[in-house]
Each structure stands twice: as structure tokens, then as C-alpha cells.
Design a protein around this nucleic acid. Structure first.
Length: 387
DNA sequence: TCTGGGGTCCTAGGACCC
DNA sequence: TCTGGGGTCCTAGGACCC
């Protein structure tokens, strides 16, 4: 039961889209990310990477490294559209597509030998079409499973196409660092390093007890992964488990009233997204990051699931007002979990809440048609600096 | 150079029920 | 009279991913 999985990953996606759409940016260091005081780098073009700039780096640091760089806020809705264009190209090659983010996806292309004797022919065609039709460069990895395909696409970047043939798994993995393993991040990699384990090859030689110690319940899966075994299927249907929005302030907040105003704006954002997705949720979680960077979360589970702004806000507000905060607040977030589909046929709310839902949906559609500023609640009038 | 915003999954303690 | 054990839900925190 041999599988062939392709992982397609766009090169420097956001920066590449900006360079595509503005020829003056081509060949130059372009950095897309937050432009505010506390912004971080989202994507750096390859020209910018030469200066040592990379994703998640604070913008201030990036500016130090490359003062002449071109710094852009980026345009998320544009990237969503380009992502859809990429997906529709992928859909011409297999119905089994699993997007991982806007710029990468897995494809299961097993059993297509009658059309393409070799799976890399599919990857070549995909790369060619993305280049020709979208003017963008993608890297691809072709392998018997997801883990290897993802590693392979990364290995050839940029403009790469790397195939891992069955039987070559261990050799391909041997010298890769343990941090490349799925689920091994900075914390675990550091622990492994301290134990003298730096490469996947070294980890593969370790005995069972070592895996138990470092990975606990994931030990068995990890032992499979280090020898290149991974039977996770490509799953094309995704059911969201949570939906949330958060904001980091330019200056830390101290006043509770200000925090509550942001709670309202965030609740409205989350509520609208829930309604758009036809979802309702029972648990509201408020996330607060203090000036010290210590992060707190407080959640409350309702009796009935909701997608109404004011229900979410009510919980968020009471949580925030009840907290004793000895420090300024640098981040505030609201997330709704415990989600389930909202059935338009059945009224899940009382009559007045159904009415309120119809009102909110009408406002949603006005905003869709005329823009976010088309309509605002009285509560926010005069305070729209928060939205 | 002080550290974004969108998520997923896991753990562990306590409440609560039978 | 001084004490069980399993299952499930809720909550808080943390690692990890792009």
C-alpha cells in the first residue's frame, strides 16, 4: 500500500506576492510584517534573508540589520485570494488536498501511475503552472508520507523539487537536526541537545527509555517518525476547534475601561467570524499578556452555545473586570471554543435572541458590501479608535 | 532588538456523577 | 464513619506550528 504525497510550499510567499505586483520591489530586500512599535517579521524576501532577517524576528531588529530594506504591512486579503488561486491549481491534480496555511498544502497523489508514471512529474507540472499562471515560485517535496514530503520541500528551497524514494528514508533523515521533527520545537530540541542528541540519526539509535523520557505519550509515534514512518492521512475536510482574535497594544493598557472597550471590539470580530462560518460556541476564553510577558488565560463555559457579540462580550467583560492586574496589559485576546455547527433551520436561541441574530447578520452583510465603517454600534460611536 | 496573530494538541488537578 | 474507583467535563498553562 504505497503512497505518494506531495508537499507544496511557496517561497517567501507574502514578500513574493508584493514583488510580483510591484516590479520596483524585485531584487530588493522586502520585509512584510507589523510596522508598529511591537511588530514582528512575517515574511522576508530572499534578498532580505541575506541580511539575517527571518520570520518572527522583531521589526526593530530587522530595521537595524537592513536599514535600506523595504518594509511593508502586507495585505492579508490579497494573500487569501492568491492562496485560493494556488488551491485551484492543486485541485487539478488531486482531490485529496490538505492546506496547512495560506502558502502550503499536502496532496495525496497515490494511484495516479496510469496518468503520471512518476509522482515528481506532477510536482513539476504544479510548479510550472504556479510560475506561469501566478508568477510565483513554489518548492515541492515528493515522498511516501507527509513528514518526509514536508522536509523534502524545505530541503530544496527556493524553487526546489526534492524526491525521497522509498528505501531512502533513513539516509535522508540521518543528518537533519532533531528540531525538524514534527512536534520538536525549541524547548525539546534544547533538552535533546543537552543530552548529546543533535541529529535525527542520533535519536534513531537511542533506546525506548530515551523516547519515553523526552516524548511521554508521543514516544511511539516519535520512534516511527525518526525512521521515516508516518501513516497520517491527507485530510481535506477541516472542522475548526476554536476561533479567536487578539491584539497587542502599542502601549500597555492600564485602565480597565479601555480594556473593556477592546473586549467589545474583539467580541464583535469573533462573533462575526463565527456567524460567517455558521458556528456557535460555548466556551469564551480571555487571554491577557502582562507587561512582563507573563500570559494568563481565564475561561468560562456557557450553558448554551452562542455566536452573539454581546454574549461573548458579557463573559469577557466580567472576566476582565474581576481580575486584579498589578501590571500593564500588552495583549488582549478573546477566543471561543467548544464549537459546533449552527443549524439555520432550527432556532437554538430564544425569540429575542433570534431577532438579535437576524439584526447582527444584516449588519454583517452591510459591512461586507459597504466596508467595515459602514455601520457601528452606538456603544462604539466616538470610540472607534478601538475597532 | 524586547518578543504578532492565527491556530492545534496535551497535561494535570478538581468537580461532579454513578 | 472517615472512605472507592471510573468516566467526563471544566479550567489553566504550555509546547508547538505557520
Amino acid at each position: 500500500v504505497k503512497r505518494w504525497i506531495i508537499h507544496v510550499d511557496m517561497d517567501a510567499f507574502f514578500a513574493a506576492v508584493e514583488q510580483r505586483d510591484n516590479p520596483e520591489l524585485r531584487g530588493k530586500p522586502v520585509i512584510v510584517g507589523g510596522l508598529g512599535r511591537r511588530g514582528v517579521v512575517s515574511t522576508a524576501s530572499y534578498e532580505a534573508r541575506k541580511f539575517g532577517i527571518h520570520s518572527a524576528m522583531p521589526m526593530a531588529e530587522a530595521r537595524q540589520l537592513c536599514p535600506k530594506g523595504i518594509f511593508l504591512a502586507g495585505d492579508h486579503s490579497k494573500y487569501v485570494k492568491v492562496s485560493a488561486d494556488i488551491q485551484s491549481i492543486l485541485a487539478d491534480f488531486s482531490p485529496a488536498i490538505e492546506p496547512l496555511s495560506l502558502d502550503e498544502a499536502f496532496l495525496d497523489v497515490s494511484g495516479m501511475e496510469w496518468l503520471y508514471p512518476k509522482p515528481q512529474e506532477i510536482a513539476v507540472k504544479i510548479k510550472r503552472r504556479i510560475k506561469k499562471e501566478l508568477g510565483l515560485v513554489a518548492s515541492a517535496g515528493v515522498a511516501p508520507n507527509k513528514f518526509l514530503a514536508k522536509l523534502a520541500s524545505d530541503y530544496g528551497k527556493p524553487d526546489g523539487l526534492v524526491v525521497v524514494e522509498p528505501g531512502m528514508e533513513k539516509e535522508f533523515l540521518r543528518d537533519k537536526s532533531v528540531g525538524r521533527l514534527w512536534g520538536v520545537g525549541a524547548t525539546t530540541a534544547e533538552l535533546l541537545c543537552s543530552a548529546g542528541i543533535n541529529t535525527i540519526g542520533q535519536l534513531a539509535k537511542a533506546d525506548r527509555a530515551v523516547f519515553e523520557k523526552f516524548f511521554g505519550s508521543a514516544a511511539a509515534a516519535m520512534r516511527a517518525l525518526v525512521v521515516g514512518a508516518d501513516d497520517r492521512p491527507v485530510v481535506s475536510t477541516h472542522v475548526p476547534k476554536s476561533m479567536g482574535n487578539e491584539i497587542t497594544f502599542e502601549k500597555d493598557l492600564v485602565a480597565k475601561e479601555e480594556m473593556e472597550a477592546y473586549c467589545l471590539a474583539l467580541s464583535q470580530k469573533v462573533g462575526r467570524r463565527l456567524r460567517k462560518a455558521d458556528l456557535i460556541g460555548r466556551t469564551v476564553t480571555v487571554k491577557i499578556r502582562l507587561a512582563s510577558f507573563k500570559t494568563l488565560s481565564r475561561s468560562h463555559t456557557l450553558d448554551e452555545a452562542t455566536c452573539l457579540d454581546e454574549k461573548i462580550y458579557e463573559v469577557a467583560k466580567s472576566v476582565v473586570s474581576g481580575m486584579e492586574l498589578a501590571q500593564g496589559v500588552r495583549l488582549l485576546g478573546i477566543t471561543v471554543t467548544n464549537l459546533k455547527p449552527w443549524m439555520p433551520q432550527i432556532s437554538l436561541f430564544g425569540e429575542s435572541e433570534d431577532k438579535r441574530l437576524r439584526m447582527l447578520r444584516a449588519m454583517d452583510s452591510l459591512k461586507d458590501r459597504f466596508g467595515e465603517t459602514a455601520i457601528t454600534s452606538c456603544r462604539l460611536l466616538g470610540e472607534n479608535k478601538y475597532t
